[in-house]
Simulated assay, not measured.
Amino acid sequence: MTLHLPHTADSSTVRPRFQRAGGIAALVAAATFVFGIAMFATTMSDYTDPDSTPAEAVDFLVDHQGSLLAWYLGIYIVFGTALVPMALALHERLRSAASLMVPSATVFGFVWVGLMFATGMISNIGIEVVADLAETDAQQATAVWSSIDAVTDGLGGGNELVGGIWVLLVSLVALRTNVLPRSLNILGIVSAVAGVATVIPAFEVIEMVFGLGLIVWFVWVGIALLRSEAPATVDRSMA
């Protein structure tokens, strides 16, 4: 099966409506990051406290099901949905570079989408299952939630490897081709490196660098795509 992605013959034929859709999606993605970090630092502070025990997490879950469902829906499902048009718009914007990095970046973008949906759906179903189980067997509920938490951390909650690779590839191509502002691309590279580094447990603390950097990056990319300006210079010699 062949994956057919939107394309243009050259940079001057980038479709404004398609780019604007990607720009709006990028702003939505930024909003989900702001929402997620705000909830993390306020409503979810007891739940996200690294010193909290699994039993305390289950107690919080039972008492705050609605808040948790909304949080996971926003940071995973809504975010994953926004990534689709954004990744496609960036693919179209970068495609004329004729570089293997462009389709590779788009693939990583789609993989990130899949991981976000998987994480969000497992978390939301898990909340309901654990809340029901907690009424009859608190110990079993704690064990089940610990397992779910480990799975979702592995898929997308515990590190930012896949997202970091996508942002890194997009930024590197855009830096070479000048299809996005140079400062934006440098910000993307720095944020992406921080995201990739979170795959190392000792570096998980820099996950916030990735998150905060990506808020600015998403907003900036969104503005650039909404303007729908054709790239000024394209280096077609990239390998």
Rank of each mutant, 00 (worst) to 15 (best):
T2F: 12
T2V: 13
T2S: 15
L3G: 02
L3W: 15
L5N: 10
H7F: 06
A9N: 02
S11T: 07
S11W: 02
S12R: 14
V14H: 11
P16F: 03
R17Y: 05
G22L: 11
I24S: 00
A31V: 02
T32H: 04
T32M: 03
T32I: 05
F33Y: 13
F33N: 11
V34H: 06
V34P: 07
F35E: 07
G36C: 08
G36D: 10
G36L: 09
A41Y: 11
T42I: 05
S45G: 00
S45Q: 10
Y47M: 05
Y47Q: 06
T48D: 09
D49R: 05
D49L: 05
S52M: 10
V58W: 09
V62A: 12
V62Y: 04
D63V: 03
H64C: 01
Y72E: 07
L73T: 15
L73D: 06
I77P: 00
I77K: 00
G80S: 00
T81S: 12
T81E: 03
A82K: 01
L83E: 04
P85V: 00
H91Y: 14
S96A: 15
A97N: 08
A97W: 00
A98E: 14
S99E: 10
L100M: 03
L100H: 05
M101E: 10
M101L: 15
P103I: 11
A105C: 08
T106F: 12
T106L: 00
F108R: 04
F110C: 04
F110K: 01
V113F: 13
L115D: 01
F117P: 05
A118I: 07
M121Q: 06
V129S: 06
L133T: 15
A134W: 11
T136Q: 14
A138Q: 14
A138H: 11
Q139M: 06
A141E: 09
A141G: 02
T142E: 13
V144D: 11
V144M: 12
W145Y: 15
S147L: 14
I148L: 14
D149Q: 13
D149N: 15
A150V: 08
T152D: 03
G154S: 02
L155Y: 09
G156R: 05
G157N: 07
E160G: 02
L161R: 05
L161I: 10
L161C: 02
V162Y: 00
G164H: 10
I165V: 15
L168K: 04
V170W: 05
L172N: 07
A174R: 10
A174E: 12
L175C: 08
R176H: 11
T177M: 03
P181G: 03
N185K: 06
I186W: 15
I186G: 01
I186L: 13
G188C: 11
S191M: 13
A192W: 06
A194L: 09
G195P: 14
V196S: 12
A197E: 10
T198P: 14
V199A: 12
V199M: 09
I200D: 00
P201V: 08
A202N: 05
F203R: 01
F203G: 01
F203T: 11
E204P: 01
V205E: 12
V205I: 15
I206N: 06
M208R: 11
G213L: 08
G213E: 09
I215M: 05
I215Q: 02
A224G: 00
E229Y: 02
P231V: 08
P231E: 08
P231R: 11
V234A: 07
V234C: 04
R236S: 12
A239K: 08
